[in-house]
């Protein structure tokens, strides 16, 4: 059997402080295939961010294993809820941040950054400061900041939740298509079920803390055109939504 791109095998992790321990993740197992777009949904505070920290190696699992297809941890591109563009840097130098940190500010990489900025309509504003840009442009700039590093895996931690509704639809389409074009694996963490259904190939539903998988649903939408709005008009959309809704509601009521 082919090794999956990323796999969690019976992973447990707890936070410790003097008052005791808080089990964030318990016996969690799931896999992500190469090039797959996986959404993780779950009740709030169920340990989703812990999972991201485990993937990126900021935390080591206390039990179980986090395995990658490659022997080394792959290059990970993060997108967080806020774009965290540095206000004291221009858009261009914000996009250079990763290269500076990794000491890889080579001509080729800078050329690639230039290509990305032109491709996604930010080249003309490259010398502006982030606060002069709209929310959507800022998120694109934040994405380019990670794209220049050629990440193998994208971790999106509710990247659209800080945006207003209209921007959110536009930006999530935008970002999703950019990332899909790159053909890399994606893990999207969200509490927005509609977002998850319309963007992901597969949805993993987590339980309340300590998080474990209660359902995995592959998503197949038959709809014309791409994008979040088109997905919402697909005939299967509501069925998926109801199943996920019942899962989450059921779990929250039990507690």
């Amino acid at each position: 059997m082919e090794r999956p791109f990323l796999s969690f095998v019976n992973v447990s992790y707890a936070y410790h402080n003097l008052k005791g321990e808080t089990q964030a993740v318990k016996d969690l197992s799931f896999q992500v295939k190469e090039g797959e777009f996986v959404a993780i949904v779950g009740p709030s505070g169920c340990g989703k961010s812990t999972i991201l920290s485990l993937i990126s190696g900021i935390f080591e699992p206390e039990e179980g294993e986090v395995n990658f297809k490659t022997s080394n941890r792959p290059m990970i591109g993060y997108m967080l809820q806020r774009d965290h563009l540095f206000p004291w840097r221009t858009i261009w130098s914000n996009c250079m941040l990763g290269l500076e940190v990794q000491n890889e500010k080579t001509p080729e990489k800078m050329e690639y950054a230039e290509y990305l900025l032109k491709e996604y309509n930010l080249w003309d504003v490259r010398n502006k400061k982030p606060d002069e840009l709209s929310g959507g442009m800022r998120q694109r700039a934040a994405l380019i900041r990670t794209l220049v590093l050629h990440p193998d895996l994208f971790l999106l931690d509710e990247p659209f939740s800080a945006l207003d509704f209209q921007t959110r639809i536009e930006v999530s389409d935008d970002i999703a298509s950019i990332i899909r074009d790159s053909g890399k694996s994606v893990i999207l963490i969200t509490h927005d079920l509609q977002e998850a259904i319309s963007l992901a190939d597969r949805i993993i539903v987590l339980s309340n803390r300590p998080a474990h998988v209660i359902r995995e649903i592959p998503i197949h939408l038959t709809c014309e055109g791409k994008g979040v709005l088109a997905a919402r008009s697909a005939p299967e959309f509501n069925d998926y939504f109801n199943v996920l809704w019942d899962d989450l509601k059921g779990k929250e009521e039990k507690v």
Binding site: S56, I58, I76, Y78, L80, R82, H84, F86, W88, R89, L97, G98, E100, V101, Q102, R145, T146, L149
Partner: peptide, 24 residues
């Protein structure tokens, strides 16, 4: 979260200091 960003980009504590902490 800005510190986390530097860490996820592969930076060490010196990067955190020079790229975020001091400019901020």
């Amino acid at each position: 979260e800005k510190i986390l960003l530097i860490q996820t980009l592969g930076g060490d504590k010196i990067d955190v200091l020079t790229k975020v902490v001091i400019p901020a």
